[in-house]
Protein backbone atom coordinates (compact mmCIF):
# COMPACT_ATOMS: atom_id res chain seq x y z
CA UNK A 1 0.00 0.00 0.00
CA UNK A 2 2.99 2.28 0.13
CA UNK A 3 2.60 3.15 -3.51
CA UNK A 4 -0.78 4.74 -2.82
CA UNK A 5 0.61 7.92 -1.29
CA UNK A 6 3.03 8.56 -4.15
CA UNK A 7 0.47 7.80 -6.80
CA UNK A 8 -2.11 10.07 -5.18
CA UNK A 9 0.49 12.78 -4.88
CA UNK A 10 1.24 12.52 -8.57
CA UNK A 11 -2.51 12.54 -9.31
CA UNK A 12 -2.91 15.70 -7.23
CA UNK A 13 0.03 17.18 -9.03
CA UNK A 14 -1.67 16.32 -12.33
CA UNK A 15 -4.78 18.22 -11.21
CA UNK A 16 -2.93 21.32 -10.01
CA UNK A 17 -2.69 24.36 -12.19
CA UNK A 18 0.52 23.91 -14.15
CA UNK A 19 2.03 25.36 -17.28
CA UNK A 20 0.71 23.20 -20.13
CA UNK A 21 4.18 22.79 -21.58
CA UNK A 22 5.54 21.52 -18.29
CA UNK A 23 2.81 19.37 -16.68
CA UNK A 24 5.33 16.78 -15.47
CA UNK A 25 7.81 19.33 -14.17
CA UNK A 26 7.93 20.71 -10.71
CA UNK A 27 7.25 24.32 -11.45
CA UNK A 28 5.60 25.95 -8.48
CA UNK A 29 4.76 29.39 -9.74
CA UNK A 30 2.71 29.74 -12.91
CA UNK A 31 3.64 32.64 -15.12
CA UNK A 32 0.62 34.96 -15.65
CA UNK A 33 0.76 34.72 -19.44
CA UNK A 34 1.42 31.05 -19.93
CA UNK A 35 -1.05 28.49 -21.20
CA UNK A 36 -1.96 26.30 -18.22
CA UNK A 37 -3.21 22.72 -18.29
CA UNK A 38 -6.70 24.08 -17.53
CA UNK A 39 -6.77 26.97 -19.97
CA UNK A 40 -5.59 24.60 -22.68
CA UNK A 41 -8.81 22.61 -22.33
CA UNK A 42 -10.74 25.84 -21.79
CA UNK A 43 -9.62 26.94 -25.24
CA UNK A 44 -10.61 23.56 -26.70
CA UNK A 45 -14.04 23.89 -25.07
CA UNK A 46 -14.29 27.42 -26.47
CA UNK A 47 -13.59 26.17 -29.99
CA UNK A 48 -15.98 23.23 -29.70
CA UNK A 49 -18.80 25.39 -28.28
CA UNK A 50 -18.31 28.01 -30.96
CA UNK A 51 -18.08 25.53 -33.85
CA UNK A 52 -21.05 23.54 -32.58
CA UNK A 53 -23.30 26.58 -32.42
CA UNK A 54 -22.06 28.16 -35.64
CA UNK A 55 -22.66 24.91 -37.54
CA UNK A 56 -25.98 24.31 -35.78
CA UNK A 57 -27.23 27.85 -36.41
CA UNK A 58 -26.80 27.29 -40.16
CA UNK A 59 -29.04 24.21 -39.97
CA UNK A 60 -31.76 26.01 -38.09
CA UNK A 61 -34.96 26.35 -40.07
CA UNK A 62 -38.72 26.53 -39.61
CA UNK A 63 -38.86 22.76 -40.01
CA UNK A 64 -36.51 21.37 -37.34
CA UNK A 65 -33.68 19.17 -38.59
CA UNK A 66 -30.47 17.47 -37.45
CA UNK A 67 -27.96 19.26 -35.28
CA UNK A 68 -29.94 22.50 -35.57
CA UNK A 69 -32.71 20.83 -33.64
CA UNK A 70 -30.33 20.03 -30.76
CA UNK A 71 -29.05 23.61 -30.57
CA UNK A 72 -32.59 24.94 -30.80
CA UNK A 73 -33.85 22.68 -28.03
CA UNK A 74 -30.90 23.70 -25.86
CA UNK A 75 -31.40 27.40 -26.46
CA UNK A 76 -35.14 27.18 -25.99
CA UNK A 77 -34.55 25.42 -22.68
CA UNK A 78 -32.33 28.30 -21.54
CA UNK A 79 -34.76 30.92 -22.82
CA UNK A 80 -37.63 29.30 -20.90
CA UNK A 81 -35.42 29.14 -17.82
CA UNK A 82 -34.77 32.88 -18.16
CA UNK A 83 -38.43 33.71 -18.64
CA UNK A 84 -39.40 31.53 -15.67
CA UNK A 85 -36.91 33.20 -13.34
CA UNK A 86 -36.93 36.78 -14.62
CA UNK A 87 -40.39 37.27 -16.05
CA UNK A 88 -41.31 38.36 -19.56
CA UNK A 89 -38.12 40.42 -20.10
CA UNK A 90 -36.03 37.36 -19.26
CA UNK A 91 -35.59 36.33 -22.90
CA UNK A 92 -33.31 39.36 -23.31
CA UNK A 93 -30.78 37.78 -20.99
CA UNK A 94 -30.93 34.34 -22.62
CA UNK A 95 -27.74 34.87 -24.70
CA UNK A 96 -25.79 35.64 -21.53
CA UNK A 97 -27.19 32.71 -19.55
CA UNK A 98 -26.93 30.51 -22.65
CA UNK A 99 -23.25 31.31 -23.14
CA UNK A 100 -22.60 30.57 -19.46
CA UNK A 101 -24.53 27.31 -19.53
CA UNK A 102 -23.14 25.90 -22.76
CA UNK A 103 -19.57 27.03 -22.16
CA UNK A 104 -19.58 25.47 -18.68
CA UNK A 105 -21.31 22.36 -20.02
CA UNK A 106 -18.80 21.84 -22.84
CA UNK A 107 -15.94 22.42 -20.38
CA UNK A 108 -17.41 19.87 -17.97
CA UNK A 109 -18.02 17.33 -20.73
CA UNK A 110 -14.48 17.66 -22.03
CA UNK A 111 -13.34 16.84 -18.50
CA UNK A 112 -15.08 13.47 -18.92
CA UNK A 113 -12.59 12.45 -21.59
CA UNK A 114 -9.83 10.41 -19.93
CA UNK A 115 -6.63 12.42 -19.81
CA UNK A 116 -8.40 15.73 -20.35
CA UNK A 117 -9.23 18.28 -17.68
CA UNK A 118 -12.38 20.37 -17.35
CA UNK A 119 -11.63 24.06 -17.71
CA UNK A 120 -14.08 24.53 -14.86
CA UNK A 121 -11.86 22.45 -12.58
CA UNK A 122 -9.74 25.52 -11.85
CA UNK A 123 -10.82 28.02 -9.22
CA UNK A 124 -9.28 30.78 -11.32
CA UNK A 125 -11.78 30.10 -14.12
CA UNK A 126 -14.91 29.64 -12.00
CA UNK A 127 -14.11 32.59 -9.72
CA UNK A 128 -13.70 34.84 -12.74
CA UNK A 129 -17.09 33.89 -14.11
CA UNK A 130 -18.73 34.07 -10.68
CA UNK A 131 -17.34 37.57 -10.19
CA UNK A 132 -18.55 38.52 -13.65
CA UNK A 133 -22.05 37.26 -12.75
CA UNK A 134 -21.88 39.28 -9.52
CA UNK A 135 -20.97 42.45 -11.40
CA UNK A 136 -23.57 41.84 -14.13
CA UNK A 137 -26.54 41.21 -11.85
CA UNK A 138 -25.71 44.08 -9.52
CA UNK A 139 -25.24 46.40 -12.48
CA UNK A 140 -28.68 45.34 -13.72
CA UNK A 141 -30.09 45.93 -10.24
CA UNK A 142 -28.65 49.44 -10.03
CA UNK A 143 -29.69 50.28 -13.58
CA UNK A 144 -33.27 49.04 -13.17
CA UNK A 145 -34.01 50.36 -9.70
CA UNK A 146 -31.61 53.25 -9.27
CA UNK A 147 -28.84 53.21 -6.67
CA UNK A 148 -31.12 54.13 -3.76
CA UNK A 149 -33.94 51.87 -4.93
CA UNK A 150 -31.63 48.89 -5.28
CA UNK A 151 -29.93 49.44 -1.94
CA UNK A 152 -33.30 49.95 -0.30
CA UNK A 153 -34.39 46.54 -1.58
CA UNK A 154 -31.76 44.99 0.68
CA UNK A 155 -34.03 45.80 3.60
CA UNK A 156 -37.32 43.93 3.22
CA UNK A 157 -40.46 46.03 2.94
CA UNK A 158 -41.78 44.46 6.17
CA UNK A 159 -38.88 45.97 8.11
CA UNK A 160 -39.15 49.32 6.31
CA UNK A 161 -42.79 49.61 7.37
CA UNK A 162 -42.02 48.94 11.04
CA UNK A 163 -42.00 51.64 13.65
CA UNK A 164 -38.79 53.68 14.13
CA UNK A 165 -37.63 51.21 16.77
CA UNK A 166 -37.76 48.23 14.43
CA UNK A 167 -36.61 50.19 11.41
CA UNK A 168 -33.47 51.57 12.97
CA UNK A 169 -32.38 48.50 14.90
CA UNK A 170 -33.41 45.63 12.65
CA UNK A 171 -32.96 47.58 9.39
CA UNK A 172 -29.17 48.08 9.46
CA UNK A 173 -28.69 44.57 10.77
CA UNK A 174 -30.63 43.00 7.90
CA UNK A 175 -29.00 45.37 5.43
CA UNK A 176 -25.54 44.20 6.46
CA UNK A 177 -26.71 40.58 6.42
CA UNK A 178 -28.04 41.02 2.90
CA UNK A 179 -24.80 42.64 1.74
CA UNK A 180 -22.84 39.73 3.16
CA UNK A 181 -25.28 37.34 1.48
CA UNK A 182 -24.73 39.05 -1.86
CA UNK A 183 -20.96 38.84 -1.50
CA UNK A 184 -21.26 35.17 -0.64
CA UNK A 185 -23.08 34.48 -3.87
CA UNK A 186 -20.06 34.68 -6.22
CA UNK A 187 -17.99 32.77 -3.68
CA UNK A 188 -20.46 29.89 -3.53
CA UNK A 189 -20.93 29.96 -7.31
CA UNK A 190 -17.20 29.72 -7.88
CA UNK A 191 -16.43 27.10 -5.24
CA UNK A 192 -19.45 24.90 -6.03
CA UNK A 193 -18.56 24.48 -9.69
CA UNK A 194 -14.81 24.26 -9.14
CA UNK A 195 -15.07 21.78 -6.24
CA UNK A 196 -17.50 19.52 -8.09
CA UNK A 197 -15.42 19.34 -11.23
CA UNK A 198 -12.12 19.11 -9.42
CA UNK A 199 -13.33 16.45 -6.96
CA UNK A 200 -14.81 14.39 -9.80
CA UNK A 201 -11.36 14.01 -11.28
CA UNK A 202 -9.74 13.27 -7.92
CA UNK A 203 -12.32 10.60 -7.05
CA UNK A 204 -11.86 8.85 -10.39
CA UNK A 205 -8.11 9.12 -9.83
CA UNK A 206 -8.35 7.50 -6.41
CA UNK A 207 -10.34 4.51 -7.66
CA UNK A 208 -8.06 4.28 -10.67
CA UNK A 209 -5.06 4.06 -8.34
CA UNK A 210 -6.93 1.49 -6.27
CA UNK A 211 -7.40 -0.65 -9.38
CA UNK A 212 -3.78 -0.39 -10.44
CA UNK A 213 -2.59 -1.30 -6.96
CA UNK A 214 -5.00 -4.25 -6.99
CA UNK A 215 -3.54 -5.54 -10.24
CA UNK A 216 -0.07 -5.30 -8.69
CA UNK A 217 -1.19 -7.32 -5.65
CA UNK A 218 -1.46 -11.07 -5.76
CA UNK A 219 -4.26 -13.34 -4.60
CA UNK A 220 -7.71 -12.65 -3.30
CA UNK A 221 -6.89 -9.18 -2.01
CA UNK A 222 -5.66 -8.09 -5.42
CA UNK A 223 -8.76 -9.41 -7.20
CA UNK A 224 -11.05 -7.79 -4.64
CA UNK A 225 -9.27 -4.44 -4.90
CA UNK A 226 -9.30 -4.50 -8.69
CA UNK A 227 -12.97 -5.50 -8.83
CA UNK A 228 -13.99 -2.92 -6.27
CA UNK A 229 -11.87 -0.24 -7.92
CA UNK A 230 -13.34 -0.99 -11.34
CA UNK A 231 -16.92 -1.07 -10.08
CA UNK A 232 -16.51 2.24 -8.28
CA UNK A 233 -14.78 3.72 -11.29
CA UNK A 234 -17.79 2.88 -13.47
CA UNK A 235 -20.29 4.17 -10.90
CA UNK A 236 -18.32 7.36 -10.27
CA UNK A 237 -17.84 7.97 -13.97
CA UNK A 238 -21.61 7.79 -14.43
CA UNK A 239 -22.00 10.14 -11.50
CA UNK A 240 -19.45 12.51 -13.01
CA UNK A 241 -21.44 12.65 -16.24
CA UNK A 242 -24.51 13.56 -14.21
CA UNK A 243 -22.57 16.17 -12.24
CA UNK A 244 -21.20 17.71 -15.44
CA UNK A 245 -24.73 18.54 -16.56
CA UNK A 246 -26.17 19.37 -13.17
CA UNK A 247 -23.40 21.85 -12.29
CA UNK A 248 -23.73 23.71 -15.57
CA UNK A 249 -27.48 23.88 -14.94
CA UNK A 250 -27.04 25.03 -11.33
CA UNK A 251 -24.64 27.82 -12.34
CA UNK A 252 -27.04 28.97 -15.08
CA UNK A 253 -30.20 28.81 -12.98
CA UNK A 254 -28.61 30.61 -10.02
CA UNK A 255 -27.35 33.34 -12.32
CA UNK A 256 -30.83 33.76 -13.78
CA UNK A 257 -32.35 33.82 -10.30
CA UNK A 258 -29.86 36.53 -9.25
CA UNK A 259 -30.60 38.61 -12.34
CA UNK A 260 -34.33 38.05 -11.83
CA UNK A 261 -34.01 39.24 -8.24
CA UNK A 262 -32.09 42.32 -9.35
CA UNK A 263 -34.70 43.11 -12.03
CA UNK A 264 -37.56 42.94 -9.56
CA UNK A 265 -35.66 44.24 -6.53
CA UNK A 266 -38.05 47.13 -5.96
CA UNK A 267 -41.01 44.74 -5.77
CA UNK A 268 -39.96 43.22 -2.46
Amino acid sequence: MDGFAEKLASKLHHYSVLPFSDVNGTVDAVDPFVLTNYTFFLVIAFVITLVFFLVAARRVSIVPQGIGQVAEAGYEFIRNLCVDNMGKDGAKYAPFIGTLFFFILFNNVIGLVPGALPGTGSIGVTATWALMVFIVYNAIGFKKNGVIGYLKSFVPSGVREMGPGGRFTLGPFIFILEIVGHFLRPLTLAVRLYANMFAGGIILGIFGIFMILGVQQLGALGITMTGFGFMMLVIMYGFKVFVAFIQAYVFAILTSVYIGGALHASEH
Binding site: V17, V30, V60, A71, E72, P95, T99, F102, M132
Partner: peptide, 28 residues
Protein backbone atom coordinates in the same frame (compact mmCIF):
# COMPACT_ATOMS: atom_id res chain seq x y z
CA UNK B 1 -6.88 31.69 -8.39
CA UNK B 2 -3.94 31.92 -10.72
CA UNK B 3 -3.74 34.94 -13.00
CA UNK B 4 -2.91 32.67 -15.93
CA UNK B 5 -6.42 31.16 -15.55
CA UNK B 6 -8.25 34.43 -14.98
CA UNK B 7 -7.67 36.47 -18.10
CA UNK B 8 -8.16 33.61 -20.61
CA UNK B 9 -11.46 32.65 -18.97
CA UNK B 10 -12.90 36.19 -19.07
CA UNK B 11 -11.57 36.75 -22.59
CA UNK B 12 -12.92 33.42 -23.82
CA UNK B 13 -16.29 34.06 -22.21
CA UNK B 14 -16.73 37.56 -23.62
CA UNK B 15 -15.60 36.52 -27.09
CA UNK B 16 -17.89 33.51 -27.02
CA UNK B 17 -20.77 35.61 -25.73
CA UNK B 18 -20.53 38.20 -28.52
CA UNK B 19 -19.96 35.64 -31.26
CA UNK B 20 -22.76 33.33 -30.15
CA UNK B 21 -25.20 36.19 -29.59
CA UNK B 22 -24.59 37.50 -33.09
CA UNK B 23 -24.19 34.31 -35.10
CA UNK B 24 -26.02 31.59 -33.18
CA UNK B 25 -28.45 32.65 -30.48
CA UNK B 26 -29.83 35.54 -32.51
CA UNK B 27 -30.74 33.42 -35.55
CA UNK B 28 -31.96 30.54 -33.38
Amino acid sequence: PVLADIWPSILAFLLLFFLLRKFAFGPI
